[in-house]
């Protein structure tokens, strides 16, 4: 858990002889999740037991799913109607550890912490979770965290513990009160190495791999200056198959829809389920009126939400954390790179 005061927590650094020992320790009394390959091409957050023997592997590529679903569940019962009364369904909040979260995904959790600040379901689960971050030493294939201020080193206040890989082995940064409490029993020795310099070196390395980001700056500028023509948005809209993949994997997307399910006992349970603003029906009113009837308008909305200045001011950062998942998942080839390059090009407007 990362209560707001921990955003000002002073980092301390310990030597970490074994990541696996830390992992086993944290898994005691909590369900610990780590990203594992399934042998069929998939990589998933998977629950491990405390005695899991598999060595920890620092993965460069983020997993297909960020941490979002752990706190903002993809399907979740909200209340039940028994024929007369409406009864709130309390969220279940098991103690969990997410082990090895990348900086971008942690920035997204912090973003959603703000958005869902008054949502009981989100906050109950969030409060019961310990976040163990992982600094990246190299850029992943589509990522651009250095351009949107989300990485590669885990940002202050977004994790409880931070794994810092170095040539000479692992260091562990204690990043919150809860993080300190969680590892108190391990009696880890303080690190004598210059860990801040190590992190700066990682940042410079990843920044050089990710480039100057002119393509992104141009795109953001065009979107906020409302300089992108409707025709450009429509040409992008024609490539949107409305699969909902981008909003599903985007770690900061938060839209949901209600779903009523009739239970075998005759009662009605209302769930909330992940929704996507790319669907034509997303804003369609009962009268048939639709303020965002065109595919291009909906594509525009998605990117305004990620890069709009108004949202940036509200949340203190862009809605895009630079993970590149939308690039991977978009069947129409209009993930963040393609879109921002297209809208940022003066000739397209």
């Amino acid at each position: 858990m990362v209560p707001s005061e921990s955003r000002h927590f002073d980092l301390t650094c310990c030597e970490l002889d074994s990541v696996e020992r830390l992992r086993a320790h944290l898994a005691g009394g909590r369900t610990l999740y780590e990203v594992r390959e399934d042998g069929q091409g998939g990589r998933h957050w998977q629950a491990l037991t405390a005695d899991d023997p598999t060595p920890f592997v620092a993965q460069t590529e983020p997993p297909p799913f960020a941490a979002k679903a752990f706190f903002f569940a993809e399907r979740e019962a909200v209340f039940r109607f028994d024929g007369e009364r409406f009864v709130a369904i309390e969220p279940t909040a098991p103690a969990q550890v997410l082990f090895g979260l990348h900086a971008c995904d942690l920035a997204a959790v912090a973003y959603q912490d703000q958005f869902f600040a008054a949502d009981a379901h989100y906050q109950a689960r969030r409060a019961a979770a310990l976040l163990v971050g992982l600094d990246c030493r190299h850029s992943c294939s589509q990522g651009f965290c250095t351009l949107v201020d989300s990485g590669p080193e885990v940002r202050a206040g977004t994790a409880d513990l931070i794994l810092l890989p170095t040539e000479a082995g692992w260091l562990l940064l204690i990043a919150s009160v809860a993080g300190a409490a969680a590892v108190a029993d391990l009696a880890l020795p303080a690190a004598s190495r210059d860990w801040p310099a190590q992190r700066v070196a990682h940042r410079q390395q990843v920044a050089s791999e990710q480039g100057d980001g002119q393509w992104l700056q141009d795109g953001i500028a065009a979107i906020n200056a409302a300089k992108v023509s409707a025709a450009t948005w429509e040409s992008l809209g024609l490539r949107c198959l409305v699969c909902s993949g981008c909003t599903t994997v985007c770690p900061t997307c938060s839209c949901f829809a209600p779903l009523e399910r009739k239970l075998p006992d005759g009662s009605i349970e209302q769930e909330r389920v992940w929704d996507s603003c790319l669907y034509e029906g997303f804003q369609k009113e009962a009268s048939g009126h639709n303020p965002s009837a065109l595919a291009g308008q909906r594509v525009q909305r998605f990117w305004q939400h990620k890069f709009g200045e108004g949202f940036r001011q509200t949340f203190g950062r862009y809605g895009c954390v630079g993970c590149g998942r939308c690039d991977h998942v978009c069947p129409g080839g209009i993930g963040v790179h393609a879109v921002m390059r297209k809208v940022g090009k003066p000739c397209s407007n």
């Binding site: 958005f115 869902f116 008054a118 949502d119 938060s254 839209c255 949901f256 829809a257 209600p258 909330r272 929704d275 603003c277 997303f282 804003q283 369609k284 009113e285 009962a286 009268s287 009126h289 303020p291 909305r301 305004q304 939400h305 709009g308 108004g310 949202f311 509200t314």
Partner: peptide, 19 residues
Amino acid sequence: VERRMHCAVGLCGHCYIAD
């Protein structure tokens, strides 16, 4: 203005008008 609304508390996203 009229918008499609579900949660009514600023979370579900349906009634957006810009930010």
